[in-house]
Structures are given as C-alpha cells and as structure tokens.
Nucleic acid binder design. Sequence first.
RNA 1: GUGGCCGUAGCUCAUCAGGUAGAGCACCGGAUUGUGGCUCCGGAGGUGGGGGGUUCGAGACCCCUCGGCCACCCCA
Length: 429
Amino acid sequence: MNDIRAIRGMSDILPEETPYWRFLEQTVSSVLTAYGYSEIRLPILEKTALFNRSIGEVTDIVEKEMYSFEDRNGDSLTLRPEGTAGCVRAAIQHGLLSTPRRLWYAGPMFRHERPQKGRQRQFHQIGVEAFGVATPDIDAEVILLSARLWRAMGLEPQVQLQLNSIGSIEARKAYKAALTSYLLQRETDLDEDSQRRLHSNPLRILDSKNTATQALLDDAPSLQDYLDEGSADDFARLCDLLDAAGVEYVVNRRLVRGLDYYNKTVFEWVTDQLGAQGTICAGGRYDGLVEQLGGKATPAVGFAMGMERLALLLAEQWAEKSSAAIHEQPAVYAISVGDAAYKAALLALEELRNKYPGVQMVLHAGGGSFKSQMKKADKSGAELALIWGEDEVASGSVSVKPLRNATAQGQQSVPLAELDSILTTALGV
RNA sequence: GUGGCCGUAGCUCAUCAGGUAGAGCACCGGAUUGUGGCUCCGGAGGUGGGGGGUUCGAGACCCCUCGGCCACCCCA
C-alpha cells in the first residue's frame, strides 16, 4: 500500500457519493433562500482566540480537539472547529448587525477526534444564523425551516425534534450550582466520565449515556425549576408556535449543549439510523455571543447540520433507487475510427453541446477498435452511441445506435444535418 | 484520549501443522471484415499495511507501528 494517503479522519468524497452532497447543498440553498437567508462565505482559518472566547475555554473542543498552529508571523491560528464563531466575527467586522440579519454558510470544519461512523476530523456543516431578534418567533422560524429541509430531502420519517430551554446565563449558573451540590454528595456513584464532568462541565452529565448515572438524575434538581420567568415564557411561546405550525417535538429536559455560548432555546434533530452519532442538526439561542466577541449586544439563534450524517441517511434512503437515477450518465457517447472520422465527431459534438447545453455527451478518447469503443459506450450507460467511420465521413452522415431502449428501432444512418432532430426525439430534450 | 474487532490483487474474499499466494467481479486483449450487453479463451495486476522478532523457512506465531470499522468520549 502506498504511504501517501489521506490524513486520518479526512476522507475523500468520491464520485459515487457526490450526487448526495450536491442534492443536499441544492436543497438547503433553495429552502434557505425561500426563508430570506443570505449566504456568507467565511475563512477556514481564524485566530485561535476567537474560538477560545466563544466556544468556551474548558470545552473538549478547545482543550484537545482544535487544529491550532503558529503561522509565519508567530500568530496562533486555528482551523475552525465550528462555524458560528467565524460568522459572528464577520458580521461584527462588516457591520452586518445594524438590522436583523439572516445568514447561512457551508463548509469544512476540523476537530481532532477519533473517527467513527458519522464523525470525521474534517467534516462539513451547513450553518444557519439569525441575528437581531430576541423573541421566540425567530426560534420557531429556524426550527420550521429545518423541518422543511428534512421534508424536502425525504428524511422526515427518520428524524425527531428534541427541544429544551437552558434558561438565562444567571438561571443556568444557579442550576449548575444546585446540580453540582446534589451530585457531589453522590460522587462515588457516578460513572468515571461524569465524575470528571462534575468539575469541568456539570450540565453535560445530564445527557450521559450511563444508565446508572441517568437513574441518579431522576431525583436531581430539574433544570425546568430553575428557569427564569423570561426563559420559561419564551419556551412556552415557542412550543405554542410549533404546535400551531404542526411541527412535532419532544421536550427533553436533559438536553444541553456542548458549547458555552448557548442560552434559552436549545434543540436537536436526532435519528436512530446512524448508531452513536445520531444528531444530524443542532442549535439554539446565543444571545450573549455577539457582545462577548466585541459587538453590540445582539440576540441570535442558529443551528448547524452535519453533512456527512445527512449524506449517510440519504444514501440509505436512496439505496433502493436505481443507480441510473442517482448517478449522472451521458445521453450520448461518440466513437470514431480514423483521423478524419475523429475530427468529424469532435466538431459534431461541439455543435451538439452548443445546441443542448447541460446534456452530457462524451466523446471517446484514447482510440482503440470499434469493438473496444463500443464497449466503452455501453459501460458509460449512455442512451445513444454515435458512430463515425470511413463510410460516415464519405457520406457526411453519422450512425446513431440506441443502446438501452429495447423498443427503439435499431441503428440508423443519419445525415449530419438531421442529427439535431433525431436527438431531440430520441432523448426527449 | 480509551476499548473491542480487523488489515491478502482496484473491489469482495479464499488458501495455510508455518514451506515464498488463488477465485469471483472489475480491467485489457481475442473468438470473421467497422459495433456493446450473454458466452468462451487468454492477459495484466499483490515486496500479503509497514517495521522488527521467533524459525532452516512466516501472509500465516510474537512485539511495535500505521490504517480501517464500531463503541466510549466528544459533538453536527
């Protein structure tokens, strides 16, 4: 095996997978446009301090997962581990926040984790951020919008919306203290990971997968009881709006976020089809972040979805479809033998591409016998083979041979001038 | 970062008390003169992930390392 390989966790997206990706990107783009969101394109590299200040100093992402290094000027830079921080930075820097602003972006993110299903070191997210609206109607909008995405992707039956409010910063602080004090008395009953979290990020214990720990939490103080009035009211309003819009959801009082900047509404779209990495989309409100990063205080809500995970779901969903429906195949495959014939084919295909923009027409390259070229034509999946040889050149014609359609008539010789109309009917274009 | 399983041709796999590797698919060529899909014949393709050790001899045993998958962790 060659030792020049892709870096661990940074996988190539191969030609057979790219149709899923393109479908996802096109669907997202059109749905977001329909809701009035504008695309913003952001650098992959940012100053390390941006992420330290936004994601939270004590999160695993910042502590042990970021790709950080010094550039030639000695500045500490980091490959972005998520998109929100950079988006907020750009919005502040370019004065985009003087009025409510709806933005989205897409691209690769980097975290040094152990790769597994649905988790790569270079992974891709599409993020959606709505700035400048403090009321829960905008929370409902981004959730509605995400629900529409799954519908448009045909993934609606496989996903479920989980919802919670983690309250204001102050309310969460008070709750965190209460929870910590409750759990400290039972520290030895906690699993090892949760004991560690108790001192770093106690709220993460709430979504522990350890059943004993979960049982211990049954009698723990509930986040719900610590919500400030504003958060509780907003959450009720959000639920009301979702009910009115017919969006189904499950309130999960133990749903929390891994990043520090969230407050109030948090939500996750989850699936049970992807093993351990079942969250395909997650987000929430982050009213303090803009100010924290040096902008004018601006409320905000947003979410990000994981493209790899969505692509996995789509691939499963489409598994029964024929490969022809998924993969682009040529309409025509042109072959020729002899120099004059090749030139005739070349010119004819250029003409045809002028006439039918976007229709895939492959001109055989690399020479070979008629037989070997016909094999290539067949393998390509093309509907028609166009054949040029000495006879065709001499008579100014081309042989058109249907390769798929059993009901079509056989090969026919067509004057070049009539090729247009033959193709129009044969291909239905 | 931790753990389990795994690593033989492009792909899916086989072989074997340890005696320097095979199949199917894919690829290339041929089976009458300019023509595919089926069939038949032939060909090419592997330093058995890499390195070390045990042995007369290792793909097969041991160690290390790299990589893959899944889970923990983390999180989209």
